[in-house]
Simulated scan of single mutants.
Amino acid sequence: MAGTGEDKLSARQELAIVALLGSSTVKGAAEQAKVSEASLFKWLKDPAFKQRLSYVRKIVTDQAFTAVGTDLQEIGRNAVATIKRNLGPPAPPAVQVRAATVALDKLANWQMVADLQEQIEGLKAQLAGQAHGEHREPPGAGGEAAGASNGADAVRVAGDAGAAAGGPDAPVHGDGVAAGPVAGPVPDEPGEAGVAPLFPPGG
Rank of each mutant, 00 (worst) to 15 (best):
Y55V: 02
Y55Q: 01
V56H: 02
V56W: 07
R57Q: 09
V60M: 12
A64F: 06
A64M: 08
T66G: 02
A67W: 05
G69V: 00
I75N: 01
G76R: 05
G76P: 00
R77P: 00
A79C: 03
A81G: 13
T82V: 05
K84C: 14
K84M: 08
R85Q: 10
N86G: 00
N86F: 09
G88F: 07
G88I: 06
P92C: 00
P93M: 05
P93T: 02
A100Q: 13
V102C: 06
D105C: 04
L107F: 04
A108D: 07
A108V: 11
N109G: 11
Q111C: 12
Q111K: 12
M112L: 12
V113D: 03
A114Y: 01
Q117D: 08
Q119W: 05
Q119M: 06
I120M: 14
I120W: 02
I120S: 13
E121G: 09
A125M: 15
Q126K: 12
Q126V: 01
A128F: 07
A128Q: 14
G129T: 09
G129S: 10
G129H: 12
A131T: 02
A131N: 05
A131S: 09
E134S: 13
E134D: 15
H135M: 07
H135T: 15
R136P: 00
P139R: 06
G140K: 10
G142K: 13
G143H: 04
G147N: 08
N150L: 15
N150K: 14
V155Q: 11
V157C: 08
A158D: 06
A158K: 07
D160Y: 06
D160W: 09
A164E: 10
P168V: 01
P168S: 14
G174A: 14
V177E: 05
A178F: 13
P181K: 09
P181M: 04
V182S: 07
A183D: 01
A183I: 04
V186W: 05
E189W: 12
P190H: 04
G191E: 10
G191Q: 10
G191S: 08
E192W: 03
E192Q: 10
V195L: 09
